[in-house]
């Protein structure tokens, strides 16, 4: 993630300011145009992974809970997209997978005891799905501390892939 240079944000330097959500998004969402053809950022834009830093701002404000940023992987084969998140220690019932329009939200909360003190541990990641998916047939599975969400591609998308031969 690259932060936007100050002079491009329109925010005056050296002043105590309160940023609105939009302004924060403007800051964290900025990407260096030189990295336009970078593979990683292309995928990032395609799936629009929620920025880590933004959720971290949230976790600082929320004193009572401990927020986790688990590692997220994206895979694909001919028929499906796969989203995998490493979240050891949760019970199946403590995990929620929700679709808000085209945004797939993965979240959960569990109780943790540390040094005899009970606290709540939560995780939150989200991914914007591409258009060519069958959102009604999304499936999720939790095994060995890894959540795998399977997002089937549409029939049209599967058929679109044509092997190019010599």
């Amino acid at each position: 993630m690259i932060l936007c240079p100050w002079h491009e944000t329109g925010i005056k330097k050296g002043k105590t300011i309160t940023l609105t959500k939009e302004e924060i998004m403007k800051l964290v969402k900025y990407r260096n145009p030189l990295r336009k053809f970078d593979l990683w950022s292309d995928f990032d834009r395609f799936f629009d992974l929620s920025p880590h830093s933004f959720s971290r701002i949230g976790s600082i404000l929320d004193w009572g809970t401990q927020s986790e940023q688990p590692a997220l992987d994206l895979y694909a084969d001919e028929s499906n997209y796969y989203i995998q998140v490493e979240i050891p220690g949760y019970d199946r019932k403590e995990i929620e997978v929700e679709l808000e329009r085209d945004r797939l939200v993965l979240k959960g909360s569990r109780q943790s005891t540390r040094d005899g003190v009970e606290s709540e541990v939560t995780f939150h990641r989200s991914v914007t799905l591409p258009e060519n998916v069958n959102a009604k047939a999304i499936g999720a599975r939790y095994k060995n501390g890894i959540l795998t969400v399977t997002v089937p591609k549409t029939e049209a998308e599967k058929a679109r892939r044509i092997d190019v031969k010599n």
């Binding site: 994206l74 895979y75 694909a76």
Partner: peptide
């Protein structure tokens, strides 16, 4: 970590190791 993925899964984005 036997998080064995089928070989047919193409990596699009990876944060885990």
């Amino acid at each position: 970590a036997s998080n064995h993925r089928p070989e047919s899964w193409k990596v699009l984005h990876r944060e885990s190791a």
